[in-house]
């Protein structure tokens, strides 16, 4: 069974060929880490799965991206509907300048769900899933801007979980956080993978090793190697993967 899949994905930004014929699939309830040096295309690849690249004016895709068996780039695909089933967590915590409660409720509210009881339930459930509930349960009306960076990032995760996505995309979610907050996020990812499929971009190879089941190594727009994380780190098939993982370039 496959949760999400890229087939012969080629991406151009104008004349720049950013992703070259990438084929990759993701199993349900797994964590896949995308690694590679800056500019290798891993973020571009991640953002294919919720059509975030559409915001860039000269973006062009060839090939297909399927989530839940549905081609999300089909002509009749509804972008907003697709994005509702896919959560995303960004590099820097980016809570809305609203209350903690409203941040989590946002995804439901834009879906037209304003029933107080439903919202209360979802907010509590999501904050618990994101391991933030105990810290903020008495201050749900507090501005999300007033909590710490690590808490903000977990709030952003809760916000993404509130719409009950199947797939969660994480773009270096811990790179702007201190080690303790990073550890909390990693624990959280470990918990979350029981019920969600997670694709995570990271610069931190140890992190990739700790949290992921599969790892994909990107280099200059090519997917060099994609395998079980243990295999990738201990016995990679490609020399370039070996060199990158051992720190000889990157």
């Amino acid at each position: 069974m496959i949760q999400a899949e890229a087939k012969n994905a080629n991406v151009w930004y104008g004349d720049f060929h950013a992703l070259k014929n990438v084929n990759m699939s993701f199993e349900p309830s797994s964590v896949t880490a995308l690694i590679g040096p800056s500019g290798c295309g891993k973020s571009t690849f991640l953002r294919l799965f919720n059509r975030m690249n559409d915001l860039i004016s000269n973006f062009k895709l060839e090939g297909s991206i399927t989530v839940d068996g549905q081609n999300i780039y089909a002509k009749d695909a509804k972008i907003d509907e697709i994005r509702k089933t896919i959560g995303m967590v960004f590099q820097k915590p980016n809570p809305f300048p609203k209350s903690i409660y409203e941040n989590v409720a946002y995804g439901l509210r834009v879906n037209g769900i304003n029933d107080r009881r439903t919202l209360d339930e979802v907010v509590e459930r999501s904050l618990k899933q994101a391991a933030l509930w105990e810290e903020v349960k008495d201050n749900l009306k507090k501005s999300a801007m007033a909590i710490s960076g690590g808490q903000q990032q977990r709030l952003c995760i809760a916000r993404a979980l509130a719409v009950e996505p199947k797939l969660i995309l994480m773009d270096e979610p811990a790179s702007a956080l201190d080690p303790i907050s990073t550890a909390k996020i990693e624990e959280l990812i470990f918990e979350l993978k029981k019920s969600f499929t997670i694709i995570i971009v990271t610069h931190n190879l140890q992190q990739a090793g700790r949290i992921s089941d599969y790892t994909g190594f990107f280099y200059l727009g090519d997917l060099i190697e994609h395998d079980h994380t243990q295999k990738m780190f201990l016995n990679p098939a490609q020399e370039r993967t070996q060199n990158y993982i051992t720190g000889r370039f990157g």
Binding site: D80, R83, K84, G87, N94, G107, N111, R159
Partner: peptide, 24 residues
């Protein structure tokens, strides 16, 4: 980043404008 966060949650461009951009 805020606009992207809103869009990623399935908000339309118009919803993003009214709920995020204008309040900001």
């Amino acid at each position: 980043a805020l606009k992207e966060a809103s869009l990623a949650l399935g908000a339309t461009r118009w919803q993003t404008l009214v709920r995020v951009v204008v309040p900001y």
